[in-house]
Write a protein that binds this DNA or RNA. Structure first.
Lengths: 111, 111
DNA sequence: GTTGCATATCGTAAATCGACGATAGGCAAT
DNA sequence: ATTGCCTATCGTCGATTTACGATATGCAAC
């Protein structure tokens, strides 16, 4: 760690005044980050990324969570746009929204 | 129990079984993502990235939040390792932990 | 229609978050 | 030591999250 005892050079060279980062930008990144802010959702996303798509039931089997809990996490992932699901008969097939994933990666990378 | 295989050709084309994503890996990414899961924390991180460092008071000035609330967000950012603060006299100087930022970017990029 | 399966939603409880004011603690100058 | 400033922590509140079982909904087959 950097030791800053001389108060003027390494630390707090603060005469310049920066504008606030764009609030909408921050909210967008916060929303996408929040989608991944729970280990179960990260694992679901990884699971979907390793497959072309996945049934809800298969996800439930892989997770140590009740079906209703997994369904709630999937709902969150859908609301943030990271995941989309299409009805396939009596089941629902989930897959990653590549555009949303790209956007998340771009936002993080541009930090 | 996946019994339907005849009717689903457009969807769920995977019969292979993937191992669970690493749980620890998921928890690590979830923790870092959670640090950015609030617009105020995203703005703080951006603010710090645009400067070499920043006093707590300057952050408070830029945010429409009370000082105690900003301090709480800073505590969260410190706990996740994204930000580090050093005491500089009666003030505290915050700056980005570049290693943690790189780790976050790497984890997201490797999704 | 009914049955059976897969998923979503409801209801609820415990835990956590986010916000604030008030207060405590630390440091420098007096 | 006292004062004054800056930051952290405490206490509290309401809102949200997370978890579960129970129930409802939707679809296909019978």
């Amino acid at each position: 760690m950097v030791k800053a005892k001389a108060e003027s050079e390494k630390c707090c060279t603060t005469s310049e005044h920066f504008a606030l980062p764009d609030v909408a930008w921050a909210e967008e990144l916060a929303k996408l980050s929040w989608a991944l802010a729970h280990p179960a959702r990260v694992r679901i996303v990884r699971l979907l990324l390793n497959r072309t798509s996945c049934m809800c039931g298969e996800i439930v089997e892989e997770m140590p969570l009740a079906q209703s809990t997994v369904s709630q996490h999937l709902k969150i992932l859908k609301e943030t746009g990271l995941v989309q699901g299409e009805i396939d008969g009596p089941r629902v097939c989930y897959c990653i929204n590549k555009d949303a994933m790209a956007k998340l990666k771009k936002l993080i990378a541009s930090l």
